[in-house]
Amino acid sequence: MLARTVENVYWLARYLERAENTARLISVNTQLLLDLPSGFAPGWLPLVNITGSRAAFDSRYTRAEEHDVVHFLIADRENPGSIVSSLDMARENARTLRDVLPAEAWEELNRFFMQLSEELPAGLNRRTRFDFLKRSILMSQTLTGMLEGTMSRNDAHTFMMLGRNLERADMTSRIIDVRSAQLLIAAEAPEHHPFDTIQWMSVLRSLSGYEMYRLGRRARVSRADVLEFVLRDEQFPRACLFCLRQIELGLHALPRSGAVRHALLTACRFLAGTALEGLGQPEVHELIDKVQLHIRAVHDSIASTYFPQQSRPATEMTVERAQGVLRSLPLFR
């Protein structure tokens, strides 16, 4: 299959997954803020940082109230990471792929995009937002299921799987980061420890992972256990390590996979080798930064091995983090 085609498939999968996970991200923040006593939470700005789009946000918004940030993340077509932009780009990539996708998948994505565009106001309204996000997640899951159920296991499918799992690993780590950002300040106060458990439950729920956690861990919800579960569970399909292992399986079907395999093993080894017991909020935050850099390295090796080298430049959005770590979210238009 053409190098350019698989690149487009890869990005189609990433954008679809990104749209879904951005919905999860907004959903978890909404839940967390409801759980926290007012006055302690840093509110909505952390979401902008976590999606690596602070500069774009600051250049166009003067306030960072709930309404501004939610608009920026859901409905802002100028924000390349918003749900509506992600779907638009998924659609643009799919448009070039009509010869490799089942016709129903294209029809569904088209319908999905049109329906969501019409429903944007519901996403901005606080009362209807939860349903809107839920529907967005469901639509993406429908499409993913449809593709899994109808696509031949060819190169296109392999790269779709690669894109989906890499984006999912990346976004799962960002969702954990929302939790740590909201608690950077609040956690210092011991009187808030009772909220800790409730909040980790919210993180699990936003990943549709609460039941799987209970089933797999048979343990009460605690910070270390939840981190263990979402970062390196080998059975939960949204856990970072699980996603990376899926990529490893996909590589068997590809030639010249040495460099990717190396980057992947480095990332897995890092995830598997890090102690999660007794980490404070700032350490979790730093850990997540490192996980994302590893994920980024896997992407770079996939791109340099398989994609056309004269290809359109990927637009990079980078953001200076407080700790001085450069965080980037690759974007493709």
């Binding site: 299959m1 053409l2 190098a3 350019r4 698989v6 190169d155 030639p255 398989y306 056309p308």
Partner: peptide, 11 residues
């Protein structure tokens, strides 16, 4: 060799 090739995943 004056032949036409396409750039695929497999070369």
């Amino acid at each position: 060799d004056d032949r036409v090739y396409m750039h695929t995943v497999h070369g």
